[in-house]
Amino acid sequence: MYSIIRSIWLTFLHAFHKRETVLYPEEKPYLPPRYRGRIILSRDPDGKERCVACNLCAAACPVDCISLQSAEDDDGRRYPEFFRINFSRCIFCGFCEEACPTYAIQLIPDFEMGEYNRQNMVYEKEHLLIDGQGKYHGYNYYRQAGVDMGVKGKGEGENEEPPVDIKSLLT
């Protein structure tokens, strides 16, 4: 009985407390850099698309809202021919960013993407691709990989020996 009255009283006292609500459009909250908002595709330090169209983001996506097709340029470099995110389905879980082996797909602290027409929630590559490196600077996947796709030759990568000369016997 006492506890009931006490809790009524304590609740009543909250009338004189400061309110927690942030009055959003007038007053913007601080969003940390790792906030999971709108998804973007970044570029590597050379200014080329980071995405190598490996399909891992699409596979990781729990609502299957990412769709892409890979293609190759003249150097054999892989890139997405199209890259589509259906934001009307996206739940901003960030699994795609976690799955991305090249830091290409990133979630950024922007969530103001409401639309009156649902069709406008479908973002194609030109809507997604930004000009910078996003959160992760200095990483270039093709310098780490073993393939020669126009960025570095065989054996010129950061962690590679020069190519083996198979015609020599003893080395």
């Binding site: 399909n55 699409a58 596979a59 996506c61 609502v63 299957d64 809202c65 990412i66 769709s67 892409l68 589509r84 995110i85 259906n86 389905r89 479908v122």
Partner: peptide, 8 residues
């Protein structure tokens, strides 16, 4: 993958 985006 991509069931909700393939024809979006």
């Amino acid at each position: 993958s991509g069931r909700t985006a393939n024809s979006a």
